[in-house]
Design a protein around this nucleic acid. Structure first.
Lengths: 110, 110
DNA sequence: CACTGTATGTACACAATGTAGACACGCGTT
DNA sequence: AACGCGTGTCTACATTGTGTACATACAGTG
């Protein structure tokens, strides 16, 4: 029934990161958010590649933004999750929630 | 800090499925559990491949079991999540929980 | 003005994970 | 013996994850 095309692990994180940043979802801010939350490093290459794939799937869109920092140049991409992206995220979460039901104790660290 | 080697989406599901089945985590039971919870089909090939990879990583172990059904033959694998597997699962979840913080409303379906 | 450092973003290659299809095997039933 | 059913294996290929090297632009410094 479901599209059988699940979001990858990292794709979900990127989507969540964008949502976290709200209106201020500049690419590298999102990246930093993920690094903070997941306690790991994320290379720019990996990050932009994933962003582009999500865009191709129609799960995110972006627009140029200007910045107050005069040193910034180029596009400065600001991202937004589309309704389709949100839906995909929800579908994934629902599956996880169902599979995690009753396992809270096991899954929470000692 | 973290191993930077995240569990894949499907790998997590398999781990969760095994935990759900508890002592009765026979391969195809687990598979059915995932199909139920995630509302999608899972081919045997895909499933066993993932199981083998999890085993190579030391995240699951299995033992043969006999069955009450005389028609059943061959190994009949019963799985178990190792402490390492459980840890990996927790690490992944922690990252997701952190990234999802405050997004409950957005993520719950209408 | 060239030279260096910082901040974005892009291109590309390769590794890891996800997925299906075809194959093997053994037991009951016919 | 031929067939169907329930398990499990092998293998090829698609998708996703990840790093490295590169390009561009501005500010500050000499």
């Amino acid at each position: 029934m479901s599209p059988n095309s699940f979001l990858g692990e990292f794709e979900q994180m990127v989507l969540l990161g964008i949502l976290q940043e709200g209106d201020e979802a500049f690419a590298l801010e999102v990246r930093r958010e993920i690094e903070r939350s997941a306690d790991r490093t994320v290379s720019r290459g990996a990050f932009y590649t994933t962003l582009d794939r999500l865009e191709r799937k129609g799960y995110v869109v972006w627009s140029e933004a200007e910045s107050d920092d005069p040193r910034r140049t180029g596009p400065l991409r600001r991202f937004e999750v589309t309704p389709e992206g949100l839906l995909a995220l929800r579908v994934s979460r629902r599956a996880f929630d169902a599979l995690s039901r009753g396992l809270d104790e096991v899954l929470s660290e000692a």
